[in-house]
């Protein structure tokens, strides 16, 4: 074997040996790092952006709280009390268009300016806690929900690109905590990957009827997973189904 061949063989042996290292090192490295930690008392620029977006989204949550609980109520009436509120956050999936196409378009748009502008408004903490989730700088908010579909928005508040697919799980709050709701049949996930650049947001709608019987009244949450720096992170999106509403 010539010199070049030997060199490649040695490279390969080292590479292969790295593939046989102790499991504990592999696992530890998978969990390690991931976040830049801010010094105590000092907010990083990224964290400040996330908090601002979080506060702004909470305002929107208040607006959609009733839409989530009473989806039949006209949207216009819910919006009336708040002046100067812009619309784009709650754009529903139009008739005849797929959630995918809406998501793809939204993925290319930056987060609406109204979110930032409304950051200082009063926040209904309870509603926010119920319907909005922040995970590792990524925000999720349920815009509309009933027993058959859920419309939500994901905001990438990190300084990196995130990706996510169509997959989700459904959980219901029971006496002993969150429990998985098993689908009534087998769900086939469309093989689509959505990319969200830093600061961008996207909206999507999940038709629960494709995998579940119509949901009974109760408190639920969708579990979505997104990828950040190669790591899978869950995002919880809570909503209430109240057919009496």
């Amino acid at each position: 074997m010539n010199q070049e061949g030997k060199r490649k063989e040695k490279q390969d042996r080292l590479l292969d040996a790295m593939g046989q290292i102790n499991d504990s090192f592999v696992e530890a490295a998978q969990k390690a790092g991931r976040r830049k930690t801010a010094r105590p008392g000092v907010l990083s620029f990224g964290a400040a952006r996330v908090l601002a977006a979080c506060a702004a989204l909470a305002v929107c949550v208040v607006l959609y709280r009733f839409a989530a609980i009473k989806p039949a109520a006209p949207v216009q009436e819910q919006e009336a009390p708040v002046q100067g509120q812009e619309e784009p956050v709650r754009e529903a999936v139009p008739e005849g268009r797929s959630a995918r196409s809406v998501g793809q378009e939204a993925a290319a748009e930056p987060a609406p300016a109204s979110l930032e502008e409304n950051a200082a408004e009063d926040i209904d903490g309870k509603a926010a806690a119920l319907t909005q989730e922040k995970a590792e700088g990524v925000l999720g908010v349920v815009l509309e929900a009933d027993g058959g579909r859920v419309t939500f928005r994901i905001v990438n508040g990190t300084d990196q690109e995130i990706s996510y697919g169509k997959r989700y799980a459904l959980e219901r709050m029971e006496e002993n905590g969150w429990q998985t709701v098993e689908p009534s049949g087998k769900i086939a996930w469309e093989d689509v990957l959505f990319l969200l650049q830093a600061g961008e947001s996207a909206e999507d709608t999940i038709e629960l009827s494709q995998g579940y019987d119509r949901l009974e009244d109760g408190q639920y949450r969708l579990v979505k997973w997104y990828f950040l720096s190669g790591e899978e992170i869950p995002l919880y999106l809570e909503f209430i189904v109240d057919s009496r509403g």
Partner: peptide
């Protein structure tokens, strides 16, 4: 150790390691 493993087991790019 974790940085070494990220690079040579997971084959993260240097940029990804730095971000992580």
């Amino acid at each position: 150790r974790n940085i070494f493993v990220r690079r040579y087991f997971y084959l993260d790019s240097v940029r990804e390691v730095a971000d992580r």
